[in-house]
């Protein structure tokens, strides 16, 4: 199923994952980078052939013609096949080609989507391909439609670390089991995720903004469930938010 910006795939195991689609602008940027790379390669080939011309004669000219063709035609095919759907431009912009069903790319898919650039690039600068892409719910150009592929944004490949810095600290609010349970009930999942995200990035914030942000968040959480004064005395707003996140994500403590 395709939403405006992602293709969702349901696995037989019952989980759903999404492949975030790359828009026409980022694709065009990747294409521009690839075009620059292939142009540079062609210039290098031509220069080398000119230098070797007196020695190789007509074979130098023949090599230029063949290598130009191989670079222009084969660049996308070879790189997307051996680099799991990436070219230099796509890698630079954080994109890759994927099968629209989430399966592994086959060589025939890579070949067909690249051969159909011949019609996607008509009349100039991929105007046909771009228009088809914009009108298509999966943002596919003609080559992608024929090949059953989509271009997706690649995500971070490193497991994000949980927020650190509060190890060994006692959470005075956790001992109030009933209030903690009520807090977990009342805190919306989206707000919990936002709080966790802010804690993870807290060191990136300006001091003034950090204070203000945690002040607002702590005030909001205090409005949901009021803990006794002795549990929150001397807690800064940031420590209060830490405690809330620990309670929400830390699970119920068994008494």
């Amino acid at each position: 199923m395709a939403t405006l910006s992602a293709v969702e795939i349901q696995t037989p195991e019952g989980v759903t994952f999404s492949l975030p689609l790359a828009g026409p602008v980022s694709r065009f940027l990747a294409l521009t980078i690839d075009g620059t790379v292939t142009t540079a390669a062609v210039i290098a080939i031509t220069t080398a052939a000119s230098a070797l011309g007196p020695v190789l004669g007509d074979w130098a000219a023949a090599s230029v013609v063949l290598l130009y063709f191989l670079v222009v035609t084969g660049y996308g095919i070879l790189l997307e096949w051996f680099w799991n759907g990436r070219t230099l431009g796509k890698r630079a912009v954080g994109l890759r080609v994927a099968d629209a069903s989430g399966l592994r790319l086959t060589f025939s898919q890579v070949l067909i989507r690249n051969l159909l650039r011949a019609v996607d690039s008509l009349p100039l600068f991929y105007l046909v391909g771009g228009m088809v892409c914009v009108l298509n719910s999966r943002l596919q150009r003609l080559g992608d439609m024929a090949a059953g592929t989509i271009v997706v944004r690649t995500r971070l490949l490193k497991l994000p670390a949980m927020p650190r810095g509060q190890e060994g600290r006692q959470n005075s609010m956790k001992s109030y089991v009933a209030l903690s349970a009520r807090l977990r009930q009342k805190v919306q999942p989206e707000m919990a995720r936002v709080a966790l995200d802010v804690l993870r990035r807290r060191d990136e914030l300006e001091p003034g903004a950090r204070l203000k942000l945690f002040g607002e968040m702590a005030g909001w959480f205090r409005g949901l469930v009021e803990f006794p004064e002795e549990a929150t005395l001397y807690l800064t707003d940031e420590q209060y938010v830490w405690n809330v996140v620990e309670i929400v994500f830390g699970g119920a403590r068994r008494e």
Binding site: F17, S18, L157, A192, D197, R200, F249
Partner: peptide
């Protein structure tokens, strides 16, 4: 369980990649 969204996103991407290999033609 409203787990960490970044961990979920990472795991989702990993499963997407593994899914392609598990169910490859």
């Amino acid at each position: 369980n409203s787990g960490d969204p970044e961990v979920q996103a990472w795991l989702e991407a990993l499963i997407a990649r593994a899914y392609g290999e598990i169910h490859r033609r």
